[in-house]
Design a protein around this nucleic acid. Structure first.
Lengths: 162, 162
DNA sequence: CAAAACTCACTAACATATTAACCAATCAGC
DNA sequence: GCTGATTGGTTAATATGTTAGTGAGTTTTG
């Protein structure tokens, strides 16, 4: 028989679900152009900021550095971005859109906006506003100090026989 | 120069960010026990439902079927779940916790709850309530008909020279 | 009853996530 | 100027996400 149920709803899981419920309306548009979610996030961000360094992309697009290395390599290989070492600091890199990807964004962007409008209408603009409001609150508050509970001694559950 | 900026904020991306802001407080607990996020989601759900079929786990835990195959294989290999073919229908499978994983949930679950309480206090219980409320609204509304915009003819951007 | 359609889990191939470790370039301090 | 610490990007190894397809088992239909 199962042990006692967890008393709290799974909030992170709820975010995952909500995100998927929204994204499923955009995914077909993005994949139609042969892009992945992450590639589109990067293109969109680059279009807005003009040029970015990898660590900035990591921060803005929520992609971890090791993942980004591969994503940028593939994007560079198919001519969606250029990578150029920064003259003053040979460690750093500058990533830019290509003429080709600028055209792509110009064609894809309006479709995303149009789909947004449809969704906004379906959900009701007030709900959208409330969402933005609460999410901003959440992300702002999270910066504050949240203590971490104490963890018990480590047990290697994976290799226990019992 | 960049084309015109997209007029809408990226709502799915906001969910991604919010989820991460929350999850980062739970991840250390989960990994401390040698589990992955998905493994814990499955253990937690199994603990609540007692036994589940793979497609039910996919639905409840938001894991796609091909991913689940691997996750369950690994979990079975280290003795966290059992998989048993259903007698009446040889296509179907029943997944259950083991005594070992029941103990694990009994030890891990309360820690998750405790961390939840800390976060709830930090964010303020009203904010949490509003969050649940809006998320439920969102997910409920999403079931309604949201039309998909028409897509232009397919272009193979990846293999274009220009 | 037999063929077609369907369901379920799985495999395959590729992209991304996650953690740890690596390495060259830069910087801090002496 | 040299050593030690730091930064920025990368590689490696493993786990999961994503899409398409497979194959056995079951249901539907003629």
């Amino acid at each position: 028989m199962p042990s006692k149920k967890l008393a709290y709803r799974n909030l992170p899981h709820l975010f995952l679900k909500a995100r998927e419920e929204l994204l499923c309306h955009f995914r077909p548009i993005i994949t139609h152009f042969g892009l992945t979610e992450q590639q589109w996030r990067i293109l969109r961000t680059l279009d807005e900021k003009n040029e970015l360094e990898p660590r900035e992309i990591c921060e803005l697009c929520h992609i971890l550095s090791p993942s980004l290395t591969g994503v940028l390599s593939r994007m560079e290989a198919i001519g969606l971005v250029t990578r150029q070492r920064m003259p003053g600091d040979q460690r750093r890199v500058i990533v830019r859109l290509t003429p080709k990807s600028e055209k792509l964004v110009a064609e894809l962007g309006p479709l995303i906006v149009a789909q947004y409008k449809i969704i906004e209408q379906a959900l009701g603009p007030e709900l959208i506003k409330q969402l933005y409001d609460i999410m901003d609150q959440l992300i702002a508050t999270e910066k504050g100090p949240i203590t971490r509970i104490a963890l018990p001694e480590k047990k290697d559950w994976a290799n226990m026989t019992d």
